[in-house]
Design a protein around this nucleic acid. Structure first.
Lengths: 113, 113
DNA sequence: CAGTTATATGCCCGTCAAGGAATTCGAGCC
DNA sequence: GGCTCGAATTCCTTGACGGGCATATAACTG
């Protein structure tokens, strides 16, 4: 399905930020523009990429376009992840189980996104 | 949150292919070169990116460098995914409800362009 | 119908990443 | 020590991507 474009879409930090915004709730473009500090055209272009990757859906509300998350592709990501999850569950058990249980993992400093 | 370089690294299809190869078993560079049909230098560069993203680690075996998966960053991805997983698990329908908050929605097609 | 708001597109430019060829570095081998 | 194999690094070119500005389009408003 959206393989390539999915990864490409998520590769951009601004787009991930948009995705995160939409996780809270659906938002019109104007709000997204304001939130991510880009120009409106740039934001629209990012939204287009996300749309084409199937990551967001649009609903038209008067002149507004309200964007919302479309979770399916993220499920795809999850599916992609599955084999690897098996891997780190077994071979990296010593690392201290799930990362979310060890927020500051000494071996792998998590840099800010 | 996932390091930017992690996403960048995974954004490239060749690199995802390499990752998939290493999922089966660790491999020396030569094998990877052969498998992904790139030149050796290009492959080495991809491996460098993966290395710097922390996705793979190298073991030196005589003149060979054997690459293997380092699953931790993938766990990071999984962590990133978590909130979204909640979203599509609990509420494909809930999302639909939010999309339908305006019941007179003239059914906006996703504008796939 | 003209005007305004909200968003999308086109164009231009700067940057960056990817790929190949040549070169270099490192480790074994004769 | 010189040679060879395996891999990494450098240089260069090219193409894609991101950003802004100006403009087009669509929908509501008076």
């Amino acid at each position: 399905m959206a393989d390539a474009s999915l990864w490409t879409a998520l590769a951009d930090p601004h787009r991930r930020a948009i995705i995160a915004l939409l996780l809270e709730r659906p938002r019109p473009v104007g709000e997204i523009v304001e939130a991510c500090g880009l120009s409106q055209p740039s934001t629209s272009k990012h939204l287009k990429v996300l749309r084409e990757a199937g990551l967001v859906r649009v609903r038209q509300d008067a002149q507004r376009r309200v964007y919302a998350l479309a979770p399916a592709p993220i499920a795809e990501l999850d599916a992609w992840l599955a084999p690897y999850r098996r891997l780190w569950n077994t071979s990296l058990d010593k690392l201290g189980r799930r990362l979310d249980e060890a927020p500051d993992d000494p071996e792998e400093p998590v840099t800010k996104d």
